[in-house]
Design a protein around this nucleic acid. Structure first.
Lengths: 192, 192, 192, 192
DNA sequence: TATGAATGAGCGTTCATTCAT
DNA sequence: TATGAATGAACGCTCATTCAT
């Protein structure tokens, strides 16, 4: 029976791994350190996860799910698509900036050979909401007629770079900068 | 005295490391394997590089320099900026697709904690040509008046996502897809 | 109070350990696996046995006892000693071949440092029936006048090698081969 | 290039493993202890052997080879077969008693699941001289007409038990005991 | 009794780095 | 320079054992 204590421990392990990897990368995040940070014995981790890789992959899926959920939070389907997209785009940026550990982890994972160990179907499932959101707008001729995969790559890729810019500390974005970023993206993808 | 043999060896080491990291990531690329692939003794690597990290960082700088150079190849300053930008954008995508190992290495590096070990000044120096190229166009009111850092992030980030899409094998881009991608980017950044 | 359920559990543990060790050896037979195969919790084993070593030793004594008992089954004291010995020798071989797990376990144990942890007196007690059987025949001048310990070693050692030969699958023994093996042993030990 | 130092180190590792396993068994002979006894670093072992298992198997083959060689030492083909066999049988016993570590290791190995990891062809190769020696004597009608595999099992199995008896300290064999043991074996296998 | 999550010492193994040659 | 055997700290992981329930 899963009780709250179980969840506490599994979550403590997830959090410790997230903390370490976001800061030091995969190969400087030993299981012994994860155990220490999670305040469990090294062996305990292996009751919850078969291996370090499995733990990392499970963490990726968990965070990616949460992330996708987050960026659609407060989506108001009554508004115009442009307004909804604006909300969506700024949400991506703002939420990532508020959760830098999650962002760094997801970025590292997605640009590492780990990604290819996740079945394609799983990734498709995770990203489905984003596809659906944008595809529909292509269909209704609100957005430019581009293959949705390219559209998603374009939007997410540009957003992700802007987040990194902010998090790197190189550049402090004001809200009007964010507004500019949104317009830049929107003018690119909208049907002209 | 540096002779051609020296260069051969250093390059062999660079190539071996590139090969391994692009395929297996930073961990899973042991120095012993690098030595084997480069056909030198393990100790020899340490005549050229102080440590594994230094080797990886040196490789990053080398590849990044080459990459920046490449994307400005055949830039014709007599053409309109739009034409020049189109060439630049397609060059980024096409060259990366032709050199997946380099692309994967640079991506991994740029999304890992390694990046923050490179002095900011060095990164600024490397990316200077891109900034100059775009900043000038902002100044001459060809491009939207956005902080150049955001502009660079936007352009490079969207391009990089599109490259990953193609290299992942999920989506085969035609040249008309590429053209669409260019227009999407251009319409976003151009002064309207 | 020992009830039938207790015996069931203890026996289930014994059987699981036997199964595992005969197949994978002492190492590669973790207690967690024993628990799983015996369908009890890991901790339960420690209600019946103080430690893994104690369990293994208890299993040895149990199986050795059963084995000695088995080889004297249907011993007919009215027959000639030669006939009784023939029955005894063939029984050793046939019963072992019918119970390979028990045979492999006993062999592994007897040739490992575990054996020396069993008190000599205990081993003497276990093997007593065999000594008595052969010693008496030495005394009555049916068998060659050799120290009984050597006699026992000779008979049991040769039988055990023949069993291993059969169980290894290298050689399929017919009943006439068995008869030959018996005569070989008999002609060696009988008083000439 | 293999020089004497190489051999020294490999041999030191072999000896350390032999020492430990003969005394404590496979699973109480950690590589760290082997390294300590061999006076090398833990990692050094892995320059010579891929894994612990490979080291153990290599040691088995080495010792088995040496053992087979030893038991035919000073075999005088001019003598009668009976005399040659007597020399052979006593040599087996005496050499094993003089080298208890080797004997214990070989016994443990041969009665463990390790044995089945050695290709059958390899084992056949190792035992060939014994087969040839006895088979020829069957052919020339000096020995009883038994399948040579059974003959070998019989001789080696009985000898091995007698050695264990002596090494266990339970029984001090005199040379006349040995002589008796030889006659017991000989009378069993000789053509009557 | 019975459970099984939790422990943590200790395992086999790897690998960045050194250094005698 | 170049070598590659040698190092040993540190890794991922196992597993006999314990203990709160």
């Amino acid at each position: 029976m899963k009780n709250s204590k179980d969840f506490d421990k599994k979550d403590a392990i997830f959090n410790a791994m997230l903390e370490l990897i976001s800061k030091h990368g995969f190969h400087s995040s030993p299981m012994s350190e994860v155990a220490k940070q999670a305040d469990v014995a090294a062996g305990t981790i292996y009751h919850y996860f078969k291996s370090k890789d499995e733990l990392i992959c499970a963490l990726y899926i968990k965070l990616k799910e949460k992330y996708i959920e987050t960026i659609f939070k407060n989506d108001d389907t009554n508004k115009t698509f442009k307004e909804r997209f604006r909300h969506f785009y700024l949400q991506i940026i703002n939420e990532s900036i508020k959760n830098p550990k999650e962002f760094y982890f997801l970025e590292q994972f997605a640009h590492s050979p780990y990604l290819s160990t996740i079945p394609k179907a799983e990734i498709t499932r995770l990203e489905q909401p984003v596809y659906d959101f944008l595809r529909k707008a292509v269909f209704t001729q609100i957005l430019r007629d581009i293959p949705p995969k390219i559209l998603v790559a374009f939007v997410m890729g540009s957003a992700s770079s802007i987040i990194k810019l902010q998090l790197s500390g190189e550049f402090q974005m004001t809200s009007s900068d964010l507004e500019l970023a949104f317009f830049t993206c929107w003018d690119g993808i909208k049907k002209s």
